[in-house]
């Protein structure tokens, strides 16, 4: 099979104006993925499916990833004017100093597609589509019209992550009920406080149990229970 770089070149040659970025995978599998821009995503996907050399006719998996806002700390070398006493004489010297800078990379949601070729027996090619942010720009183009296998899985990603697939024929919740407001697979999802806690709680469960008991104490209840 072609390498990711070759696929990227082929896409750029076939679909003018396509935005494709390689997301490297540093692991031993080296399964690098292709990040697609929204405008040309459907054309790029159609090319990947219909190109006789790639013939990625089988969509095995669609999943979602929730990337939270990330604080990045980096060290930057900064030149500074420093007044120093060198050999008894006061001088202004230019000096390079390490400075730590922090900035916040905004989070986003990501839909990941794994493509294989039944005809040519190769794969996977991994596609990624990213949303603008995690709150109001949560749309990505749907690929259901190219691979029908995507229909239910995109609905699942919509249900659990809240990614809205534009162009999906029937975008409804598939696992949770209608009227459910949350997206349970997001990292900031707060579960309903509805289980009585085991007496030997530890780690995450212990934290939840303590929070629950503090809340119950504030409400004047005895013990721990189902939030009622």
């Amino acid at each position: 099979m072609k390498t990711v770089e070759e696929i990227k070149a082929a896409i750029e040659a076939a679909v003018p104006g396509a935005k494709v970025e390689i997301v490297p995978n540093p692991g031993p599998s080296g399964e690098h993925s292709l990040l697609l821009g929204h405008e040309q995503a459907v054309e790029v996907a159609r090319f990947l499916r219909d190109d006789p050399e790639l013939a990625l006719d089988y969509l095995s998996n669609v999943t979602g990833v929730d990337w939270l806002d990330k604080e990045v700390t980096e060290k930057v070398k900064v030149k500074r004017q420093v007044t120093k006493t060198v050999d008894g004489v006061e001088q202004t010297v230019e000096e390079t100093v390490d400075e730590t800078r922090k900035h916040v990379e905004p989070g986003y949601l990501e839909a990941v597609y794994h493509l294989f070729s039944m005809a040519r027996k190769h794969g996977p090619v991994v596609l990624r589509l990213r949303t603008g942010n995690r709150t109001d720009q949560v749309e990505v183009p749907s690929l259901t019209m190219l691979w029908r296998a995507a229909e239910f899985q995109e609905r699942e990603v919509f249900d659990l992550y809240g990614i809205v697939f534009k162009g999906h024929p029937d975008l409804r919740r598939i696992l949770m009920w209608e009227g459910f407001k949350d997206h349970p697979m997001r990292k900031d999802y707060v579960e309903p406080d509805d289980y009585e806690y085991e007496p030997t709680a530890h780690d995450q469960v212990l934290k939840r149990a303590q929070a629950h008991q503090a809340q119950a104490a504030a409400m004047g209840q005895e013990g721990a229970g189902a939030g009622q």
Binding site: P192, G223, Q228
Partner: peptide, 19 residues
């Protein structure tokens, strides 16, 4: 409901356990 089943338990059927 919007976040969970409402109610979370039926009163009189299930006493909230005390840990």
């Amino acid at each position: 409901g919007e976040h969970d089943l409402e109610p979370a338990s039926n009163q009189g059927v299930w006493p909230v356990p005390v840990v």
